[in-house]
């Protein structure tokens, strides 16, 4: 009921969309007046969200600092120019370069894609096993997964960092690993450690998708001569594509937005968008930060989120039209 419930609740339904129009009448739950009052109330409640996001975007295009979206300001691309030129903190004497920006975005992307890859590669086969295979301890393990998900992450991170410290020192001092190798190790560690946190929930999410495929389809493939592994790759994986898409999106977002692990594990010479924004605002740095440029960075950082909504939006509108829901 967790991840899948979340998705289903957001999107209405995850069943494959048929383009057939079957008229479904809406329930007249509330009168028009009540309905509009509710919409007005919702709008009022949503005001802080709308205001704050608008301000962020506006700020990234504004020539001066503004405190509310209504304030007069002149439109400019200067912040964006500064951002892409790497002049992230114009008032400070700090030197950045365009390659630094590229690096920042690339690092964020590496972590996000890495987390996505590890999560999809590990949770999908595990979910298949839990959904379709009988083995001793299946129930207990599934229960255990839920407990793991409920686990205080902060209790884990201490141990996770201790292992990191130990292995890092072994690499650096024992094996004399070079700087590049150590950096690669840091990335690898962040990715795998962060991805592991997603495994319990992701396994449950994917299990829900596997559960929905009729057993007969799987049996048919076995009778047709396929081994279990083949059934998994040739039949089941193609059939859970929507699930894989959902899992990929959510795990990508988890890696993309990660702040704590990135700040803790990655050296400061390997910044991500999260650690950049954090560095601009934390401690005393705020005295020298130029907020409109930070806003531009934040908007860049928001791009996957925006894509997510554009993508699901179109999916949803399509689904709504398909169901013949009147506009």
């Amino acid at each position: 009921m967790q991840g899948e419930g979340l998705l289903a609740g957001l999107l209405g339904s995850l069943k494959p969309r048929r383009r057939r129009r079957q008229p479904t009448e809406e329930l007249p739950l509330a009168s028009r007046a009540v309905s509009y009052t509710v919409i007005a109330a919702l709008l009022a409640a949503s005001l802080p969200i709308i205001l704050s996001y608008t301000l962020l975007v506006e700020l990234s295009f504004s020539a001066s600092f503004i405190a509310t979206p209504f304030e007069k300001t002149s439109f400019t691309l200067e912040n964006w120019r500064l951002f892409f030129q790497g002049r992230l903190a114009p008032t400070a004497a700090q030197i950045y370069t365009p390659s630094y920006i590229r690096r920042m975005i690339l690092d964020t992307l590496i972590v996000a894609l890495g987390v996505m890859g590890v999560v999809v590669a590990s949770a999908t086969p595990a979910a298949y096993a839990f959904s379709r295979m009988n083995f001793r301890g299946r129930g207990a393990l599934m229960r255990f997964l839920i407990l793991l998900h409920a686990f205080p992450g902060v209790a884990l991170i201490i141990g996770v960092y201790a292992i990191y410290v130990y292995t890092y020192r072994r690499l650096a001092l024992g094996l004399h690993a070079g700087e590049a190798a150590l950096l690669a190790y840091a990335f690898l560690y962040v990715i795998v450690a962060r991805a592991s946190l997603e495994i319990p929930m992701s396994t449950w999410l994917m299990k829900g998708f596997f559960d929905r495929i009729p057993w007969e389809v799987e049996w048919a493939a076995l009778v047709d001569g396929a081994s279990r592994l083949r059934v998994f790759t040739r039949i089941m994986l193609p059939l859970v594509k929507p699930g894989l898409a959902a899992l990929s999106i959510f795990s990508f977002m988890a890696g993309w937005e990660e702040l704590i692990y990135v700040v803790v594990f990655l050296p400061s010479k390997a910044p991500t968008l999260a650690s950049y924004i954090h560095s601009q605002l934390s401690g005393g740095a705020i005295e020298t930060a130029y907020l409109p440029v930070v806003a531009a960075a934040a908007v860049v950082y928001l791009i996957p989120t925006i894509l997510f909504f554009v993508f699901t939006q179109s999916l949803l509108v399509e689904a709504a039209e398909g169901a013949g829901v009147k506009a």
């Binding site: 009729p214 076995l222 009778v223």
Partner: peptide, 19 residues
């Protein structure tokens, strides 16, 4: 296992591979 028996099976609901 079924994949070693060389039987052909037509299921009640056919179980065609939808993809």
């Amino acid at each position: 296992p079924p994949n070693k028996r060389n039987v052909g099976l037509v299921f009640q609901n056919y179980a065609l591979y939808p993809h």
